[in-house]
Design a protein around this nucleic acid. Sequence first.
DNA 1: CCAAAAGTGTTCTACCTACACCCATGG
DNA 2: CCATGGGTGTAGGTAGAACACTTTTGG
Lengths: 246, 246
Amino acid sequence: MQTENFHPGLSIDCVIFGFHENELKVLLLKLKKDDRWALPGGFVEKDKDVDSEAVRVLKKRTGLDHIFLKQFHLFGDVDRIEPSHSDTMVKKGVIPPELKGWFDQRFVTVGYYALVEYSRVKAPTPDLTSERCDWRPLSDLPPMMLDHAQILKKAHQTLKKELNDQPIGLNLLPEHFTMPELQALYETVLEKSLDRRNFRRKMLSYDILIQTDLQRKGGAHKAPLLYKFDKEKYNNAILSGLQSGW
Amino acid sequence: MQTENFHPGLSIDCVIFGFHENELKVLLLKLKKDDRWALPGGFVEKDKDVDSEAVRVLKKRTGLDHIFLKQFHLFGDVDRIEPSHSDTMVKKGVIPPELKGWFDQRFVTVGYYALVEYSRVKAPTPDLTSERCDWRPLSDLPPMMLDHAQILKKAHQTLKKELNDQPIGLNLLPEHFTMPELQALYETVLEKSLDRRNFRRKMLSYDILIQTDLQRKGGAHKAPLLYKFDKEKYNNAILSGLQSGW
DNA sequence: CCAAAAGTGTTCTACCTACACCCATGG
DNA sequence: CCATGGGTGTAGGTAGAACACTTTTGG
């Protein structure tokens, strides 16, 4: 790691959301020799835009390009990092001693949240300090390193707020999906249940969905219709915002 | 200036909004030996929270404490600063040569926007690199340094979006104000005109205003009633958001 | 007394809410 | 054949949009 090429005291953390089995999930890293987990993150090269460095982090962990990604907050409190943190990391051999100086700095971190299609992430890749990279349900999070739990919480709050402005469905769902699946996504993000029939009507009124003549077979009951997004109309609608919230 | 105590490559810029003569205004600094203007800003001490450093900047320029202040974006593109910028500053004698190294760094900056009551800012104070500190109307901005025009624009966009969540009236208006004044504020922020009667009804329906029996005399026409905010109810309403936008 | 701005009220419509009913499917 | 979930329709209430009239004030 060439720390001299990095912007000092600045890091990036990504909250990568996915949707699977009617649950919001987050891609997390299991730290080596530590029972806590961390958000995928990284440092910023001096001659790179911060946003593009976030794209790089995402690509490394998920293998995916062209992901919906949005900066949502800078976390800049002094006490967001315990001073003993770098000591512990060196002692456990997770980071080499020559990098201790780098990790001893005071760091501020830029939070990004990403929306990805769960099934497209084939092999989540851990980084140097972690042993695994896994999806974890938002409803049952493991213990997290430093202030990462707060960062995650803020990301979720932001997502909730921006639900009407952001292309949530398009990025989190596979190409074809059923109306109940889309509704489940909204209910998960909003943390409240919605009326089936009203949801359908309102969603259809946006005129951004295309009904296909395919059905999701295999369920034990009536086979629901599959929809896909009309990407052009979708993008136009996003521009003006999907007014009138949920 | 003790640059070694500052967090490297990190700065703060504040977009300070005020409302005067039915116009949104921004507090800007006129640079020395340069016909451009700049946002009030500063650097971050290593042992201080970024947010509290923004408070410090605000206090220095406006003399005010307890101001509504909100972080809205990190500007982290490489090309947001021209490499020649520090050269020019040194040549013009605006910054001493020994600080050139500091200003030669690649900088990212955290944008904050603040809402202040115009009349409470008695003597806006310039900093070392500026000769004046003045209110400038948002509708007619002077040429700005670096990417400050973009930062300002983004601040305005954010304010517009958050109009229903943020305590806009309470912070930008004096204690007593008329309904038309409040409406003018909303119209300015939103950049569109609103129906007088519908505005009044909706605003009153929030139940956050207290009608006083005072009137704004001196106008050439019917004297409007003065209102003030019911701060307790106001804060409660903010918590749940003033749903249903403008 | 008149122009201009402030206060008040009404109607129409659209959308959100809260429901009830029928249909398809697998066990 | 029936339980379960999916698709469709409808009535009532609320709130926003559009509008007209009256009142107060200074000149």
